[in-house]
Structures are given as structure tokens and as C-alpha cells.
Design a protein around this nucleic acid. Sequence first.
DNA 1: TTTTTTGTTGATTGACGGGTCAATTAACGT
DNA 2: ACGTTAATTGACCCGTCAATCAACAAAAAA
Lengths: 195, 195
Amino acid sequence: MPKLGMEPIRKAALVNATIAEIGRTGSLDVTVSQIARRAGMSSALAHHYFRGKEAMFLAAMRHVLTLYGAEVRGALAVACGPEARVQAVVRASFSPASFRREVIGAWLNFYVMAQTMPEAARLLDVYQRRLRSNLRHGLRPLVGPRAPAVAEALAALIDGVYLRQVLVRGKTDRAGAVETVLDVLAAELGRGART
Amino acid sequence: MPKLGMEPIRKAALVNATIAEIGRTGSLDVTVSQIARRAGMSSALAHHYFRGKEAMFLAAMRHVLTLYGAEVRGALAVACGPEARVQAVVRASFSPASFRREVIGAWLNFYVMAQTMPEAARLLDVYQRRLRSNLRHGLRPLVGPRAPAVAEALAALIDGVYLRQVLVRGKTDRAGAVETVLDVLAAELGRGART
DNA sequence: TTTTTTGTTGATTGACGGGTCAATTAACGT
DNA sequence: ACGTTAATTGACCCGTCAATCAACAAAAAA
């Protein structure tokens, strides 16, 4: 039975299963056995590959953050002009990959984790810094000295729109989410601009 | 020892202790014993007054929501003019009472609860509806048909700013929070207005 | 006074979950 | 062939926690 080079496959499976289970139950009340079963292995094996439940949670969080980071970088790469860059960040934040039910549920619980696990707090801090930084760079040429404040507002708005989707019973509304944020962006850009 | 008319006092103590403990640990991983101890009684007595842990959580949530509702109503009562009404809602959302560390932590976990407990979801839904409704009524005379969309954006922004405070290590920044939201409001109001 | 109601707790229970370990299986290098 | 090493698991231990219960204390009612 035992094939070689299973480690990366097993770890990946566990990470995905962790996200899926957190998304399914909508909470961190997930047993290692549940995760392991969904990943198709025994709970003992899960403990073999990760130090413990906390390590699994952190790995899942890193994975989501990595995917999101890639999404943002990809969108920024093809964006030309400051406004397009800001829009790219917003759109990437609501990309289909990041806007799945399970991932949204996972995000919410990452915030909860950050309250108890220092490493989780660090990861979330890194994400927030990058997000604000990306927004600021795009906004600087557009709103000058107000860039930090506007970036802060947009970042909070993105998180808020995300948070609200957590409660939506039916299908998530990606288009509406993007529209809401871009609408505020337009309002901020139009400010003081005598057309 | 046993004095009469203890029920309301005990229940209130348990509700406060629940909020405090959730805020302290930053998660729903709170034992009935912890809550009961902080409330100055045995865990058995806590079970005597509430059907179980879930009931305690819900009672705590209702309490926070009630306080917040009172805060908003109070602020609206003294606000004259549409813009003042919108500002009143925003300021009430970040009132010192609602913006304490523990309460913020509790809010975050209410969102988590809403994913598993239908009653929690209902309560949160009521809160969100009222918030949006209050914002819309104030915004209608100011931005006309765009009121629903702007209300949605402001509501999300408020939640987002709240969410971000969860991670702040040091003191929470109330003034900054209000400023961020009111700044966006100003941008939306200034839109299309040729000064 | 006796009875009932309300308040209160320590002890107990039953279930469950995280983590460990010894033991088994199969691939690999030599 | 043969030891070495990675993969894998079932069973188990230990702790924790929600919930229950029997029993006791005090005030109110009878």
C-alpha cells in the first residue's frame, strides 16, 4: 500500500479538507477526525504530517492567503494605469476562487483564530498590510495625500462586503460586491474633480 | 444565602459574564464553568437559569443588540435633518459602549454563531435590516434613487471598520473609525454636487 | 409549625476529542 | 535476499466539558 512521496499530496489534501470542513460547519469546531476522513485518511496520519490541529489551521490559512496573493499579483500584472490597478485589487479580492462559500467562511474564522493564535494574527496582518499598500500605490496618483485614508476605507469596505456575504443564505453575489466597492471608489475619485 | 428575586440578577450577571469571556478569549471556546465562575456562581446554577450554553450565547447576543439599538434610537432622536440622521447612525455604531474590546470580539463571534445557529442568524439579520433601513431613510433625501446602494456600502463599511479593530493590538481608535466612515459619506454626498 | 417554593451546590456521568504508540505493510537501496 | 525507511492505522490514554441529580438552605405560604 504505502507509496512513496505521499507527503506533499497528503498535506495538500489535508489543507483542502480543512478549508472545506471549516467552510461547511462555519466554525472552528472541527475535529481532526472529520478533516482526516474528508481527506481520505486516518486521524493518526493527519497528526503525523502536522504537529497538531493548530498547525493544520495555520497551513490552511497560509494556503488561502497564498492563493489570494497570486490572484492579486496576476491582476496587477495586466493592469495599466493607476485606476486600473486599484480596480484590479478590488476585482481580485472578489475573484471566483476567493469568493466561494467555503473560503468566505474560512476567512471569517481566520479572524477568530487571530484572536488566540499569534501566528494567525501575524498572517492576517501581513495580508492587511499588503492590501493597503497595493491600494495606496494605485491611489497616490489619483487622490494624492488622501491616498492613505482612502486606501484604509476601501480595505475596510472590502472586508465588510466579504463579511456580509457570510450571512447570505442563497447564492453569493459577486457582481454586486464588486459594484459596491467600485461605486465608492468612483465617489472618492470624483471628489474635488471639477469635470 | 439564598435571597429572593435572584433570577433577573443572576441572568444579567451571566449575560455580562458571557460577553466578557467571549471578548477575553476572542472565541466561542468558552466553558459554562468559566462563565459561571466570572458571574460568581456554580456552573450548575448557570444551567438552572439557562437551558444550556447556546441559550446563554443567544441571550448575550440579544443583549448586545438591544444596547446597540437603544444607542441608535437615542442618537436618531436628537438628530435633525437627513444628513445628521445618517451621521447619528454612524456615530452610534462606534459609540464607546459598543466599541469596547470585549463587545467587538463578541460581535465577531456572533457572525460565527450565525453560521450554525439559525436563531443567531435571525438576530443578525434583524440588526442588518434595521441598520440598512435607518441609513436608507436618511440617505433618500440626500442621494435619491442611489440611497439603497449607498446604504449598502455604508453598512458594509461600518462592519468592515469594526472587523479591523478586532486585530488591533493596542487601544482601539474610535475617532479614526468614525472619520473613515464619515469621509466616505462625504464623498458620496459630494458626488455630482457642483459646489 | 408544617409545607412549599426558590436558590444553590458538589459530585457524578456520559460523551467526545486531541494526541501518542506499537505494530504492520510495502517500496527502495544494496 | 535483507535491512532501512516511509506510510499507515487501530487502539488507547488522558483530559475536558455539558448536562444532570440528589440534597441542602432559606424564605414564603398555609
